[in-house]
Every structure is written in structure tokens, then in C-alpha cells.
Design a protein around this nucleic acid. Structure first.
Lengths: 194, 194
DNA sequence: AGCATAAATGAATGGATATTCATTTGATAT
DNA sequence: ATATCAAATGAATATCCATTCATTTATGCT
């Protein structure tokens, strides 16, 4: 068994346990049991409990960024790109429920390292949106009087709140496609009649 | 000193301490010191640490709902109402920073009581938005093909993410009015050029 | 096989802190 | 002034759990 195997095995267990109980209520022994290793083994791969959480952010968000960039690069119209971003983001919640829960919950926690984290790696993820907006403005597809920084927040926030609905109440009232479409439609066209 | 005085005093201390350190890192003795009472006194007013948090949600969100309803009832156009909602919500972050931090952080935590909480009292707050939307649709001001449930999420999520920016990075790049205007503008008119 | 090194184990430790409760302090009435 | 009751105190308790490390088990090399 390669070293990386056990590293990932523990991380996957942590995603599951953190997702279910939250970071503070999760015990190291829970993660150990889930990963099928001894408690002490975890400390051969991670410095402490908090380090597990940070590593999890680092590596898993990295994967998300890669995936979503690949999907977006297929499109040339910025309006479509926004839809694709929404679709991918919302799909994550369905397909990797526990990871989504961890990100939802723990990325909001106080604590300097987490705040720092949001400012760097996580910001990279959200900044994909503002890049799309900026390019759209250059191409005259998107209104130039709006600040990309605000649109980015608003669009991401909308998706994030939608995710929360599903996480709290897994009986999907709306489908992923429907939601992604509705949200990009609202942003592109607004809600005012006529 | 009336009973209610000390009750509120402890609650205010809790808002401050939870806001700064988060629920799990806050010690009862921190709250006691901040409220200027003995540790044991807290247990005369609350059953346990968690009860402080739940009471805090219950009472403070109740106040918010009352305030925001009062402000909205001054307007008759649903477009203006949305702006007012945004303005009030964002002002909260500036004027009651610690409370906003607590709500941001802890309302996301796992734990059944908190999830339950979001489904009830907090939902009442957010549902003010869907009421506005529904009335707007009846008055033909807002597109009828959009589901109020989705608009509500999207609009609230946008505001919530904006709040988060300020909480994490208190150097306000945008003013409250500017942000409230930009966000309601985006929702009302969309971001597409022309 | 026998040695050496690395990986894994899990019981024991130590530190933290929510909660309790015996005692003190303050208020009210007679 | 004294008795009675309520409110407040804060040191002591009990529990919980992250982390350590002496010991065991697995792996690789000659």
C-alpha cells in the first residue's frame, strides 16, 4: 500500500465525518474508525486535527478548480459560461454531498487560518466568475456599469444559498439543471416583467 | 436590577464572544467575564451553552423580522421593497457586526436543532423576500415565469455573500448603499448589455 | 532465514472546560 | 434588628478527547 493511499483514505474518512458531525463534534477516533486505521496512524500523515481540515480544503478545492476550468474552456460565450459554472457548482452538491457540507459549514468558521484560506485558494475558485464577467464586458456582452467584484459575490452567493437548501433538505424540490438555468437566467435577464 | 436585564446582558456578552471566537472556541467563563457575572450565574438564566445560542437566534432574529417588516411596509412598489430589504440586511452587518458574525457562522453549523432552526424562524426572515416577489408577480411587476422560491434563495444568497465579504475583510471596498443598489439592480434588470 | 528499518497500533496521559452546588451576599418584610 | 427567601458566586468535579509513545507488526534487503 502506497503512502498516498492512506493519506487519501484518511482524508475521505474526514470528509465523511466532518460532513456529518461538523469539525468540532468530530472525534479523531471517528475518523480513524471510518478510515479503518488506528487513532495514532492519523498522526503519521497529519500534524493535528486542524491540519486535516486545511489539507482537505487545499486538495479538494484544487480539484474543483481544475474541473470547472476545463468545462468552461469548452464554451466561447460568457453567458453560457455562467450557466456551466452554475451547473458544475450545483452538481457538486449532489455528487459529493459530504464534501459540499464540509465546505458549506467549515469555510465559514472563524479562526485566522480559515479566514486566510478563504482569501487565497477559495478566492481562486470564486474568481473564475469575475474573470468570466470581465471578459464578457470586454466583448460587450455584459453591462459595463456593473462591478465584476459585486456580480461575482452575488452570483456565487446565489448558488451557495441554493446548495444550502439541498444540504439541509435533501428532497430536491428543483432539479440541478432547472436551478442552474433559473439562476443564470435571473442574473442575465433580471426579474422585472417586460 | 430586573431579571430581564441580566438575561439580556448575558446574551449581549454571548453575541460578542461567539462573534469573535465562534461557538465552540468560546468558553462560558469568557461570556461570564464579558457580562461581568460569575460563571454559575449564567446557569440561572440558561440551561446550557447551546441554549444560549438558540435563545440568541430566537430573540435577535425576531427583532430583525419586526424591524424589516416595518421598513418595507412604508413602500408600495415591490422593486423598492427589494432595495429596502437589501439595505436593511447589509446595514445590519455594519451596525451589529458581532451579531452578523454569529448568524453567518453558527447558523451554518450542523446539529439537528440548528437545522431545525433554519427551517423555522430563520425561514420566516427569508420568506419576506418571497412574499415581496409573489405580490410583485400578482401586480405584473415581476416576471411570472420565475419561481419565488428560487428568486428568494438567489437574492438572499447574494446579500449573504456580500455580508461575508465585509465580515472577513472589514475595509469596505463598497458602501452599503452602493452594494444594496447594485444587487437589487442586478436582480431587477439583469447583467446582459442592452 | 535473519537483520534492519519503516509503518502501524491503541492504551495511557494531560489539558481543557462545561456544569454543579455548598456557601455567601443581597433584598424584603415584620 | 432579625428572619426568610432569592440571587449570585466561584472553587471543585467529572467528562471528554486530542495527542503521545512504548510496543508490535510488516516490509525489504543480503
Amino acid at each position: 500500500m502506497k503512502k498516498s493511499d492512506k493519506h487519501q483514505k484518511i482524508l475521505n474518512a474526514a470528509i465523511k465525518v466532518f460532513g456529518q458531525k461538523g469539525f468540532f463534534n468530530a472525534r479523531i477516533s471517528d475518523i480513524a474508525k471510518e478510515a479503518d486505521v488506528a487513532d495514532g496512524t492519523i498522526y503519521l500523515y497529519f500534524n493535528n486535527k486542524y491540519d486535516i481540515l486545511l489539507t482537505l480544503f487545499e486538495e479538494e478545492i484544487g480539484k474543483l478548480i481544475t474541473e470547472i476550468r476545463a468545462a468552461i474552456s469548452q464554451k466561447s460565450d460568457q453567458r453560457e459560461m455562467l450557466y456551466i459554472f452554475a451547473l458544475h457548482h450545483l452538481r457538486l452538491v449532489i455528487e459529493k454531498k459530504e464534501l459540499a457540507e464540509v465546505l458549506q459549514m467549515e469555510l465559514r468558521q472563524s479562526g485566522e487560518s480559515i479566514k486566510e484560506y478563504r482569501r487565497t485558494k477559495f478566492a481562486d475558485y470564486v474568481n473564475i466568475i469575475s474573470e468570466i464577467i470581465r471578459t464578457g464586458q470586454e466583448n460587450n456582452i455584459i453591462r459595463r456599469d456593473l462591478k465584476p467584484g459585486i456580480i461575482k459575490r452575488a452570483f456565487f452567493g446565489a448558488l451557495d444559498e441554493m446548495s444550502r437548501l439541498w444540504i439541509l433538505n435533501p428532497s430536491h424540490k428543483y432539479t440541478v439543471e432547472e436551478s442552474a438555468e433559473a439562476i443564470s437566467d435571473i442574473f442575465l435577464n433580471g426579474i422585472v416583467a417586460d
